[in-house]
């Protein structure tokens, strides 16, 4: 099977399982798993298009956070409930592990490379989430200003 397809399928499966571990409400499991599909697919697409870890993760995180905010309003649940499990495929598990591995084997070049990748992934997730939060807060404060 195609490598990209395997990545998308396993990210969906992993997101579903993580949602259960994090005790997501049963009636939200479908939306959460769909979030995993979106984040996994976006990551694969952006990595192929941009070939840059930071920008790929940032864009995938932005779209996942936007999806969480929109669906949270539609199904009346806190956005965190959808976003936390949906963003699991973006986490830097592989690069964090290889950072440690290369530290133990004194491979300085690879250690620096994976450490940079871990930091870029973390920063990318944070920036994507923050960008969506800024948009949501701006819309909310404009709406509040109108009603007052």
């Amino acid at each position: 099977m195609n490598r990209e397809l395997i990545e998308i399928l396993t990210s969906v499966l992993g997101t579903f399982a993580f949602a259960v571990i994090l005790n997501a409400p049963k009636n939200r499991l479908l939306f959460v798993t769909l979030g995993g599909l979106i984040s996994g697919t976006c990551l694969v697409i952006f990595q192929a298009l941009l070939n840059n870890t930071f920008f790929s993760v940032c864009a995938a995180s932005f779209i996942t956070a936007l999806y969480s905010e929109i669906f949270a309003r539609l199904i009346k649940t806190p956005s965190t409930v959808i976003f936390i499990p949906s963003s699991i495929p973006l986490l830097p598990g592989g690069s964090l592990y290889y950072t440690v591995y290369n530290l133990i084997y004194f491979n300085k070049n690879n250690f620096t490379h994976y450490l940079k990748e871990t930091a870029e992934t973390g920063a990318g997730i944070a920036l994507g989430v923050t960008a969506v939060a800024i948009i949501i807060f701006s819309i909310r404060s404009k709406r509040n200003a109108k009603t007052n």
């Binding site: 986490l91 592989g94 592990y97 992934t121 973390g122 920063a123 989430v129 939060a133």
Partner: peptide, 20 residues
């Protein structure tokens, strides 16, 4: 195997939340 296991422990999201 360790990369799979690391995913259960990784505190990635709290980094996102803390920066936000």
């Amino acid at each position: 195997i360790m990369i799979g296991a690391i995913m259960l422990l990784i505190p990635g999201l709290s980094i996102g939340n803390s920066i936000r």
